[in-house]
């Protein structure tokens, strides 16, 4: 990276507070593919000059996969430990790189003593576009390119965020095509509810294959994602269908960063 990503600890030591905390999430921290998305979100934050920070090694799993798998103990242990850290830093606003972290911190932390304004990175991008701070210029042109957007369940149905990621794509002047099942009727990638961490049950097809077939039916050049788990599932699907050359799966943040030459 061409710049240093600031941590909360450093800001606090300097007696400063950020406008927004970037919650990276486990996938964004460890998964190689998702790390790229993480860095692109930082590049966007840096580019627009928003004062932000990350927790770095002080961040820990939100507890989402434990909760969806039924282990409420582990979830609340994780949640309360994280809330202690967040409250100690006097955090007010959080942007997450993952819809699962977004849902958990936004909806399930308040009842345990952690109340923050929480947005998903696609909402941040939409806000920045609306404020005129972010455009689609100086980078790769997506003009006329065919893009289809896959709604992550925990962003779409889970929290009703359908427009922000689409707004972020609209500025590209690209050709947006919707899959047959989209928005409230969107089809899961197959990874939610802790499925990411286990083999699927016996069946006649994998969910991500069902989804990728629908995505490919729109004949896109890009499939846009907003979730690191969807990213993994969609990428696997594209590979299995041997379409890696024709179709690229990119996160909203990556597309935005590319369009701005970041």
């Amino acid at each position: 990276m061409e710049f240093k990503v600031p941590t909360m600890a450093e800001l606090m030591a300097a007696g400063e507070e950020p406008e927004i905390l970037f919650w990276v999430g486990c996938a964004g921290s460890y998964d190689e593919r998702a790390q790229k998305i993480t860095r692109d979100i930082c590049k966007i934050l840096h580019h627009v000059g928003l004062k932000y920070a990350v927790l770095g090694t002080e961040e820990s799993c939100t507890g989402d996969p434990a909760k969806r798998a039924g282990n409420e103990f582990l979830f609340q242990m994780q949640a309360m430990t994280n809330i202690e850290v967040l409250n100690a830093y006097n955090i007010k606003k959080i942007v997450t790189g993952c819809p699962h972290c977004f849902n958990t911190i936004k909806n399930e932390y308040p009842g345990l003593g952690g109340t923050y304004e929480v947005i998903h990175h696609s909402q941040l991008i939409q806000d920045l576009i609306n404020e005129g701070k972010l455009k689609a210029e100086g980078g790769e042109s997506f003009k006329g390119k065919k893009i289809t957007y896959h709604d992550p369940c925990y962003l779409g149905r889970g929290n009703g965020v359908y427009e922000a990621p689409r707004k972020a794509l609209e500025v590209l002047d690209a050709q947006l095509v919707e899959m047959k099942r989209c928005k409230a009727n969107g089809l899961c990638c197959g990874a939610g509810g802790a499925q990411m961490f286990k083999e699927p049950e016996k069946g006649n097809k994998d969910v991500n294959i069902e989804r990728i077939e629908e995505a490919l039916a729109t004949e896109p050049q890009f499939i846009a994602a907003g979730c690191p788990f969807c990213m993994t599932m969609l990428n696997d699907g594209v590979k299995l269908k041997d379409k890696e050359q024709e179709v690229k799966v990119l996160d909203i943040a990556e597309i935005t960063a590319r369009a701005n030459g970041l």
Binding site: C153, R157, C188, G190, G192, G193, Q195, K198
Partner: peptide, 8 residues
């Protein structure tokens, strides 16, 4: 265990 909690 087959549920993805997708809320469809």
């Amino acid at each position: 265990w087959a549920c993805t909690s997708c809320n469809a």
